[in-house]
């Protein structure tokens, strides 16, 4: 499974989201490759992704995609992340 985290530069927020998503996945005992990317590359990077994790600001720019787009409010709330990941994968 491939999960892509999206932010403006592909550095800060998406990097934090990647680290914390990996933490949540471990807690759920799920395996996935998590890639951080900037929103301008979402078409190519997320072409084969099942899930896109991002914040509200980028939903519109991500646009149409086959992946489930999950919006995260607090990037450090691993229980929010785990819950939303479990809902999407369950």
């Amino acid at each position: 499974m491939k999960i892509v985290t999206i932010c403006g530069a592909g550095i800060g927020s998406s990097g934090v989201l990647k680290v914390n998503a990996e933490r949540a996945l471990r807690a759920l005992d799920l395996e996935a490759t998590v890639v951080a990317a900037e929103v301008s590359t979402v078409r190519t990077v997320a072409a084969d992704a099942q899930i896109i994790l991002t914040t509200q600001e980028f939903v519109e720019a991500i646009g149409k995609t086959n992946a489930d787009v999950i919006v995260i409010v607090n990037l450090f709330d691993t229980s929010e992340l785990a819950q939303k990941l479990e809902d999407a994968l369950g």
Partner: peptide
């Protein structure tokens, strides 16, 4: 970055 993409840098 914030003008272009919004206040997403407020990460917590």
């Amino acid at each position: 970055m914030i003008e272009d993409h919004g206040p997403y840098v407020v990460i917590a």
